[in-house]
Every structure is written in C-alpha cells, then in structure tokens.
Amino acid sequence: MLEEMLQQAQDVQKKIKQIQEELDDTEVIGEAGAGAVRVTMDAKGLIKSIKIDKESFATEKIEVLEDLIVAAIQDAKKKSDNAFTEKITEIGLPPDLLKNMFQ
C-alpha cells in the first residue's frame, strides 16, 4: 500500500516535470488593434516579445499605442492562463494548487 502511494507520487512528479517543460515551450500571442500590437508570452506568463506595426501609428497617437500594448498583454496573459490550466488539468490536479510552482 505504501509502495503504491510512493509510486503514484513519483508518477505525478514525473508528469509535473513534463508539464513544466511543455509550458516552457508553449507560446501564446495576444493581439490588440487588429494586430497592430502583438505580445508573445509563454504559458507561465512571461513576456517574450512585443511587436508593433510601425505603419499603424503616427507619433501623435502614442497614447492609443500605449493602451493597445496593455490590451495585447492582457490578451496574452489570458491565453497563457488558459494554456496552463489546460496542461495541469490533463493530469487531474486543480490548477490553483500548482500555479505557484510554475511561476
């Protein structure tokens, strides 16, 4: 019985390590302004890059650009959270339980 429980714990630990590796490789792209601003983020919520379509903005529209960057980050974060939740629920554990382990 104890040996069985230890084996199950080891299996979960292996799955968590595998998911951590998958999350490192999973990227999502948040967009705002019909693609004028794009934010690439990993499934852990770390921003990898911000791309701005330079032809979409004149210097006088910088406030609009700033708002779109925030919107694109929020979109990417939402997608990142969804990717994380999807991976964690695959092993049958509640995402809230493990979220802090992966950040």
Rank of each mutant, 00 (worst) to 15 (best):
A58S: 08
A58E: 12
A58Q: 11
A58Y: 07
T59K: 11
T59P: 15
T59W: 09
T59E: 13
E60K: 11
E60Y: 05
K61C: 04
I62R: 07
I62T: 05
I62S: 02
E63A: 10
E63M: 12
V64M: 14
V64Q: 12
V64D: 08
V64K: 07
V64W: 09
L65E: 06
L65W: 07
E66D: 14
E66R: 15
E66V: 12
E66F: 12
E66Q: 15
D67H: 13
L68A: 03
L68V: 13
L68F: 08
I69A: 10
I69G: 04
V70F: 06
V70M: 11
V70A: 08
A71Y: 11
A71S: 14
A71Q: 12
A71K: 07
A72V: 15
A72K: 09
I73M: 07
I73D: 01
I73H: 03
I73K: 02
Q74T: 14
Q74W: 10
Q74P: 14
D75H: 13
D75L: 12
D75A: 13
A76G: 08
A76C: 10
A76D: 03
K77P: 06
K77M: 10
K77E: 11
K78Y: 04
K78S: 09
K79Q: 14
K79E: 11
K79F: 06
S80G: 12
S80I: 05
D81P: 10
N82Y: 05
N82P: 13
N82L: 13
N82R: 13
A83R: 01
A83D: 02
F84I: 03
T85Y: 02
E86S: 12
K87N: 05
K87S: 02
I88V: 06
I88A: 00
E90C: 03
I91N: 00
L93R: 01
L93A: 04
P94W: 00
P94K: 03
P95W: 00
P95V: 01
P95Y: 01
D96L: 11
D96G: 14
D96C: 03
L97G: 02
L97D: 06
